[in-house]
């Protein structure tokens, strides 16, 4: 119970910091909407269903990277040495994953809504867009779990955005491969039940990443 409370407070703290500087979250939203709008302008409103599928995952991927690459106030040396004595690293990484999950799920929602508004629901003639949305959100969770640890490694290494991309992009490809396959299955009219095993696989991957983060983060944490 105590652990849950601590994690809750950490997440709350992170969100409060995020809200306090409004530019951060606004910038992300503008990035996502601008990316969707560029897709709309380049393909036109009558977009091919395969490119619909491809574009949404690419936009989501880059939005996620953008969200994660923001410098984190708690990564500064002074803040870290305070946290080091007050918070256990396991709570800390879980809080971070939860925070990223909330953020990326919101991004996923924004991107999905943007696609629905600008590019339409043409591809979903025989399948439900809600199922697709479920896939988007699950992908966001998986990305959050993976990127939380990658971001921690990169910020400890002091490498910034380029290091996050170099370390993160190859690791993310399996997630995106599964997601795109799920999306194209849905769009090609396959029943949700027949392609739901992709979601199960995504969930397993997420669990694996969370477990890895939970085990490995303490080693990153200490000096």
């Amino acid at each position: 119970m105590l652990a849950l409370q601590k994690i809750y407070h950490l997440v709350q703290h992170a969100i409060r910091i995020e809200i306090r500087n409004k530019h951060g979250i606004l910038g992300l939203l503008i990035f996502a909407i601008a990316a969707v709008y560029v897709c709309y302008q380049t393909t036109g409103s009558s977009v091919h269903s395969e490119s619909w599928n491809a574009l949404i995952w690419v936009v989501l991927l880059f939005a996620a990277f953008n969200a994660v690459s923001k410098p984190w106030a708690d990564d500064s040396a002074a803040m870290r040495s305070v946290l080091f004595h007050t918070v256990s690293p396991q709570h800390w990484i879980l809080a971070r994953i939860i925070y990223y999950t909330l953020m990326l799920c919101a991004m996923g929602l924004a991107v999905f809504l943007g696609f629905v508004i600008f590019l339409g629901l043409e591809p979903f003639k025989s399948s439900s867009p809600l199922h697709f949305f479920l896939g988007v959100e699950l992908t966001a969770v998986a990305l959050a779990a993976l990127l939380a640890l990658i971001q921690a490694i990169a910020s400890r290494a002091g490498g910034g955005f380029s290091l996050i991309s170099v370390l993160g992009l190859p690791l993310i490809i399996p997630i995106i491969l599964i997601s795109t396959r799920f999306g194209s299955d849905l769009i090609s009219g396959m029943a949700f039940a027949d392609t739901a095993h992709h979601l199960l696989f995504l969930a397993t991957l997420t669990g694996g990443f969370v477990a890895l983060g939970y085990i490995l983060f303490p080693y990153l944490w200490r000096d």
Binding site: L149, I153, R156, A157, L167, L171, G208, L212, L216, Y219, L220, D223
Partner: peptide
Amino acid sequence: QRAQLSAVYNLFAFT
């Protein structure tokens, strides 16, 4: 730091 960070990443990579 290099030893620590790269060990963590290597475990990830092997997975």
